[in-house]
């Protein structure tokens, strides 16, 4: 799994780390049950603070992609983490694209609901 961070970019370093791991899970270069590099090791490797790495890992835990356990480090969760990581990545891209168009969150959510309803073949709810 390749992790690249660039302090010169505007995106926070923790987000950059999380994005790289997510991509690694999505493309299968890290698989279910595999242990991610230890926070201390990865921090030393990337020359960033250990708190930055932990913040990135916590993000991934909140997304349900990895488990964080004291003493066991970070492991990729079971289920279908690759698909899940892909969906999360797509959601982020959707939000970014929406931001560029100045769509607010309600409009994005409405778009998603509409797409979901179409996919389910049901009635499309009226747009607010």
């Amino acid at each position: 799994m390749l992790i690249r961070v660039d302090p010169a970019r505007s995106v926070p370093l923790a987000d950059q780390i999380a994005a790289c791991v997510r991509r690694g899970i999505a493309d299968g270069s890290v698989s279910t049950g595999e242990r991610l590099p230890g926070a201390r090791d990865l921090a030393a490797s990337l020359e960033v603070s250990i708190h930055t790495v932990l913040a990135g890992y916590q993000q991934l835990r909140d997304e349900g992609l990895i488990e964080l356990r004291r003493g066991r480090g970070a492991t990729v969760r079971g289920g279908s983490p690759a698909g899940r990581a892909e969906v999360i990545e797509l959601a982020r891209r959707l939000v970014e694209a929406g931001r560029r168009l100045d769509l607010d969150d309600d409009e994005l959510v409405a778009l998603l609901k509409e797409a979901a309803a179409r996919a389910a073949g049901g009635a499309v709810p009226p747009r607010p």
Partner: peptide, 13 residues
């Protein structure tokens, strides 16, 4: 290609 400010880490078991 790695830029001057960029950090990179590849790990595999």
């Amino acid at each position: 290609p790695i830029s001057d400010t960029e950090q990179v880490s590849w790990t595999r078991t």
